[in-house]
Amino acid sequence: MTKRREQVVRVSDAEGFAEAGAVLTIDLAAIRANYRLLRTMLGGARCAAVVKADAYGLGADRVAPALVKEGCDTFFVAHLSEGIALRKILGESPEIFVLNGLPPGAEGACAAAGLIPVLNSEAQLVAWREHAARDRKTLPAAVQVDSGMARLGMPPEEVARIAFDPRAFDGIDVRLVMSHFARADEPREAANATQRAVFEALAKMLPAAPRSLANSSGIFPGAENHYDLARPGCALYGVNPVPGTENPMLPVVRLEAKVIQTREIPAGSGIGYGHAAKAVEKMRLATISLGYADGWHRRAASFAFLAGQRLPFVGRVSMDSIILDISALPPGSLAPGTLVELIGPHQSVDEVAAQAGTIGYEVLTSFGSRFHRVYVGG
């Protein structure tokens, strides 16, 4: 069973609580603990942190500084704009890599912010080299090779062509050679060994530099994946990096929504849009202030909890509200403003994702901007 960690905080005392329909509590101490666990597992390899998509929806402005306090000095984002924003938050010292590389014409902005582009193509390499020549500087870069995912990175034929050009990396300080597993969460898949072999062969054709292949799931099978630097993302935020086994990570988020209204309906009543549900007997219902505009998947068959009692969703998820069956609760248990748990000790991010037919990554990154956010453990 997934480890649970209770968060002690009086959210009702926080400024902005009264105006919000739902509360998202983010445990920075749990993120730091998860980072420590991953770093320990890596032995001598360095542990970076992936904070793209606003730290997977949890707030890079709070998460990244907490990780710096834990000793993390290397961060990865997806877009140049994310890297520029993160540089303003963290200052000059941490290394910040931009996974999607250089958009055409953005070389100057990347260099000015002190970011390290992950060069994914020969065209990006040429543009960065030419910018270094114009500025008469040596500029840092990572090089990503495509070891078998067919998403980002230089394919083998491009790496081979570059390897025969003695001036390919003039003015470029290669800080990292990297690739990305396609099936790291399936450690027994032969594709992982194939990718390692391809990665190693391609890395030998490039300038000598630290190597990186493992994401969160890639850390767990063993040291053969670790190389010099690992790039965990989802595991930091409590998503299970080893599906099918007990989650080794601490949970990080707790999501609670307020009750708006309660009612009692007679048998035969239609419930929600399209009357997708009907009461087969007298029922008591509660409507909560959470919906698909907040990132809760519309077709997710799910539950809320109050004091450990499971409260099933009834009918369709609306844009701003969800109807719960509270017939199992004693009358008067709920009133407007009562908080019910959607994610927390009784229901993990991964369990919510499974109910929606998706993955924990999508649940976290779908969270909207209307939640009242509370950070604990900072």
Rank of each mutant, 00 (worst) to 15 (best):
Ala22Asn: 14
Val177Gly: 06
Ala356Gly: 14
Glu19Leu: 14
Pro155His: 10
Ala223Arg: 09
Phe305Met: 07
Ala286Val: 00
Val159His: 05
Arg161Pro: 05
Leu255Ile: 15
Val145Asp: 09
Phe164Lys: 12
Glu6Asn: 11
Val340Gly: 03
Val259Asn: 04
Ala354Asp: 11
Cys110Arg: 03
Ala168Pro: 14
Arg32Glu: 00
Leu250Thr: 02
Lys204Asp: 15
His275Cys: 07
Ile89Ser: 14
Ile326Phe: 07
Arg10Trp: 09
Arg129His: 05
Asn215Gln: 11
Leu125Ala: 08
Val98Gly: 00
Gly308Asn: 08
Gly308Val: 04
Ala22Pro: 08
Ala78Glu: 09
Pro156Ile: 10
Arg39Ser: 09
Lys69Thr: 04
Tyr273Pro: 02
Gly44Gln: 13
Pro210Leu: 09
Cys110Thr: 10
Asp350Glu: 10
Ala203Gln: 09
Gly57Trp: 00
Asp73Glu: 15
Phe305Gly: 07
Gly218Tyr: 10
Asn240Asp: 14
Leu38Asn: 06
Asn34Ala: 04
Val252Glu: 00
Arg211Gln: 14
Arg136Trp: 00
Pro187Gly: 03
Leu67Val: 02
Glu200Gln: 13
Ala55Thr: 02
Leu37Arg: 14
Val259Pro: 05
Ser318Lys: 07
Ser348Glu: 02
Ala14Glu: 10
Phe313Val: 14
Gly108Cys: 02
Arg370Asp: 05
Gly291Trp: 10
Phe76Val: 05
